[in-house]
Design a binder for these strands. Structure first.
Length: 562
RNA sequence: CGGGGCGUGGCGCAGCCCGGUAGCGCGUCUGCUUUGGGAGCAGAAAGCCGGAGGUUCAAAUCCUCUCGCCCCGACCA
């Protein structure tokens, strides 16, 4: 392709609203433009990157027997009502009515329609298993679109659905996807972790997420380098370091006006890990007292898994439920449900005395209070791994994919059944597996960039090589450039030739920004000596190669890397 | 949905507090010079100052409402 004909609107400055590196660079380098909050236009270069990612995804999905289908983006309300999600999902679903006044919605995912199809056209165990996938636009009215292409309201998603006879079959389909996904991200050239994840509102029994490390990410994972334990912090288990407990004598201490852990620790000159933090929350079933260690943070998602949706109690609710002003609550002698983090099981702690202006020392689980124990603290760096005891690392990540075992959550309500060998009707056992191609692109930019611009992995770069004649008005340079360009295209490489009559500086800056992995620079002086320069975008290393060997040399580099 | 910030030529910004009818840098166009890391000089085009209402002789500037965008949080199937 000729640069002079390609629409690549590069910018010297990043738009004011861009924050994430990938956002700034993708806009500056002319890959995308924003139409409105969470709505992006993919320009020619961006389009090529997406096409390449989607191609890799398709190849790997086809390799495990996936079959591509196309689903309607516009859905009737009925299927969503049958699974209960029409009501369960709130403002995040775009809803509308057709001219006949029928309720419709824009599909934000396709469990319903895929299962509808299975319900209608899968009849016999002989037809199972099946893996169907789609690479399509989905719409979600995100509460807060952000970080460029990372969280948008309209986005392409590859998702596949597996249909099996039983759990054993699902295991196999799940395993196929688990491996296929690893290949996809590896081929796309991004760093990623596979972590245990919450099944969330998708339902189901097992789930993993594929996480690409990046500070622009919205999630955090806990990782153990020693044994490989990896989990989303939403469910990561960890064992905090055990403090040295002072002697366990139970005594009341006056702590006037000292309410927060911070105030009390300073007042009593003790470290926060010797305290019990008592947090009252209001659940659908009434107030619940959550207990974590003073140096830890309650993880609301972990707690939600135990008690359902909840919110922190107001000051007057604390007083009403416990008869104690907030700031002096202790775990002793309340009749309400109490959930304590396991780190409180042993040891002797300081806690609120359930009496205004007082705390108590020497509080022991099983002696001063009883509670259900469950890991409800947020894992932090340095906590011990539950599997091997080595310290955990916490890293910020972009979720680039997820896989779920759905079981019969959707097949049961939509009556997606099959007949087994004995003629008995059974629900199809399903799995669902998603990938966000735009997030792969963004993650690649987040992971591959320098002060000059993007550094694409070869496999998803919009072009593999850029041929850059420094002076297009020099006949010899242009002849050599055109010849190289034609020869490389002939070999099947994707080549961009910068045939613009621009100053060298501009061409170099644009080339760096756009991030094509390899660059051949044709300069007048070098050409007179019969050489051109071959520059690696990533390392910046420049190699002079003989014109006669250039094509072969470039081909060698490209093939070597691929 | 809660908290904060910002809307001024295509892009990045100043002007607003202390009203007087808009300016800088980059980009764009023309000409000459230049030509290996975002050139120099000369000239030019381009802005209902997000929108509506109000105050005033006069509003980018003050007041009210509204729309949009970004950030933090909540949410994220």
């Amino acid at each position: 392709m000729r640069y002079s004909r390609l629409f690549i609107p590069t910018l010297k400055e990043a738009p004011a609203e861009a924050e994430a590196i990938s956002h700034k660079l993708m806009v500056r380098a002319g890959y995308v433009r924003q139409l409105a909050a969470g709505l992006y236009i993919y320009l020619p270069l961006g389009q090529r990157v997406m096409a390449k990612i989607n191609q890799i995804i398709r190849e790997e999905m086809n390799a495990i027997g996936g079959q591509e289908v196309t689903m309607p983006v516009l859905n009737p309300a009925e299927v969503w009502q049958q699974t209960g999600r029409w009501d369960a999902i709130g403002d995040e679903m775009f809803r509308l009515k057709d001219r006949g006044g029928r309720d419709m919605c824009m599909a934000m995912t396709h469990e319903e329609t895929m299962t509808w199809l299975a319900a209608h056209d899968l009849r016999s165990y002989r037809e199972l298993p099946q893996i169907w996938y789609q690479v399509q636009t989905k719409l979600r009215d995100e509460a807060r679109p952000k970080s460029g292409v990372l969280r948008t309201r309209e986005f392409t998603m590859k998702d596949s659905y597996s249909f099996d006879r039983d759990d054993e079959g699902l295991d196999k389909s799940y395993q196929l996807h688990l491996e296929a996904y690893k290949k996809i991200y590896s081929r796309c050239g991004i760093k990623f972790y596979v972590v245990q994840s919450d099944t969330g509102m998708m339902g189901g029994s097992m789930a993993h997420e594929y996480m690409a490390p990046s500070p622009a990410g919205e999630d955090e994972v806990a990782l153990c380098d020693a044994c490989g334990y990896a989990a989303n912090v939403e469910l990561a288990l960890s064992v905090p370091k055990t403090p040295n407990f002072p002697d366990g004598k139970y005594e009341e201490v006056a702590t006037p006006e000292k309410r927060t852990i911070d105030e009390v620790t300073r007042f009593l000159k003790l470290t926060p890990d010797l305290f019990i933090k008592s947090i009252l929350v209001m659940s659908d079933e009434g107030p619940v007292l959550a207990l974590v260690r003073g140096d830890q943070t309650l993880h609301e998602k972990k707690l939600a898994k135990l008690i359902g949706p909840h919110r922190p109690a107001q000051k007057d609710e604390v007083k009403a439920a416990l008869g104690v002003p907030a700031g002096f609550i202790g775990p002793m002698a309340h009749k309400i449900r109490k959930i304590a983090d396991p780190s409180l099981r042993d040891g002797v702690y300081v806690a609120g005395a359930n009496k205004e202006g007082y705390h108590v020392k020497g509080v022991k689980a099983g002696r001063e209070f009883e509670a259900e124990f469950a890991d409800i603290h947020a894992a932090v760096a340095g906590d011990a791994c539950v599997q091997c005891g080595k310290p955990l690392r916490i890293e910020r990540v972009i979720e680039v994919g997820n896989i779920f075992k759905l079981g019969t959550k959707y097949s049961a309500p939509l009556k997606a059944n099959y007949l087994d060998e004995n003629g008995a009707e059974r629900p199809i056992v399903m799995g669902s597996y998603g990938i966000g191609p735009a997030r792969i692109a963004a993650a690649a930019v987040e992971q591959g960039n320098d002060e000059n611009g993007i550094i694409w992995p070869l496999a998803i770069a919009p072009y593999q090589v850029m041929v850059l004649p420094v002076n297009v008005n020099d006949g010899a340079s242009m002849d050599a450039a055109e010849e190289l360009y034609a020869a490389l295209e002939e070999k099947g490489f994707e080549v961009l030739i910068d045939d613009r009559d621009e100053r060298a500086g501009i061409k170099f800056k644009d080339a760096d920004l756009i991030g094509i992995p390899w660059r051949v620079i044709i300069g007048e002086k070098n050409l007179k000596e019969g050489v051109v320069e071959l520059k690696d975008r990533k390392t910046g290393v420049v190699a002079k190669v003989k014109v006669a060997n250039a094509v072969e040399e470039i081909a060698r580099k490209l093939v070597m890397e691929a």
